[in-house]
Design a protein around this nucleic acid. Structure first.
Lengths: 144, 144
DNA sequence: GGATAATAGTTGAAAATGTAACTAACAAGG
DNA sequence: CCTTGTTAGTTACATTTTCAACTATTATCC
């Protein structure tokens, strides 16, 4: 007596997405964790600053869809490790402009190279058509 | 002076996967959380038992790629809510067969119907071809 | 100008997760 | 049988995450 006999968890999109995302993140996590001792949110912040330049915590939250407490703590850790510096904004003294130090830039250069390599390896598991369709579809789904 | 000027975080596959997965999970989470007060791991366990029938915690771990401590705690919660019952296996007294109660089956019926509806809504954002390619690609990536 | 509301970011406590050590039961080899 | 090793599941502890309250500053609007 099944109400929905044809429901398959393994075809449920949120489930599939999670499995794939977890698998992918895990693989990369071991890489950057061992290389830099950073946590996920930390390298995300690092990546944003490295790639898009100086910005405030709020901007990082918006771009990366991260909660402000997560970002706040990640920034604090990156600061104690001398990967970034804070400058109170002259226009708005509540906000702080965040900027990578040279050590931060070096870490970013290293990790982004690793990331690219990792991405290539992942992509290699897919056909070019699959890869393209995947990225398009993911972008649609991420934007809701 | 960028070492890797063409690295785009938003094209980084693990990042994309995470964004899409989080977005999708969040949407569904609000649904089942408000409807049943369950946590993610709890309804996953519920789904496995509802869909595939009686099994042990170990089997749920293997099928869902969940850590045994997570499953152990989820099972405990589902038990206190009278959604499932445990029966020590006669063949191996360490193992417990887990079985949904009628309340558990009812919750499963409700949530799986919700899940199907949610999946349809998500899928509607994609073209049929995109949807198919996405699912194929995700299955490849999840299996690594 | 001065009250009120909104915003950037921090912090503390509660909930969740991961890690590792643990108990109890089984398995295998002598 | 009895030591050694393995396995199912739980529990304790450390780390992370989330939620709510808080500070300091800016914006609104009467």
């Amino acid at each position: 007596m099944k109400t929905e006999p044809d429901f398959d968890l393994r075809q449920f999109l949120p489930y599939l997405l999670n499995q794939a995302a977890e698998q992918a993140s895990l693989g990369f996590q071991t890489l950057y964790k061992s290389r830099s001792g950073m946590l996920r949110t930390e390298w995300r912040v690092l990546f944003h600053l490295g790639r898009y330049g100086e910005m405030t915590a709020k901007e990082i939250c918006a771009r990366g869809r991260l909660h402000k407490t997560k970002v706040s703590r990640a920034v604090a850790k990156l600061e104690t490790r001398r990967f970034l510096q804070r400058h109170v904004s002259p226009e708005d003294k509540r906000a702080e402009h965040l900027k990578l130090t040279s050590a931060g830039l070096a870490a970013y250069a290293d990790l982004s190279a690793q990331a690219q390599e990792f991405d290539r390896k992942l992509t290699a598991k897919l056909t070019p058509a699959q890869d393209q369709a995947l990225r398009q579809a993911l972008q649609v789904l991420a934007k809701l």
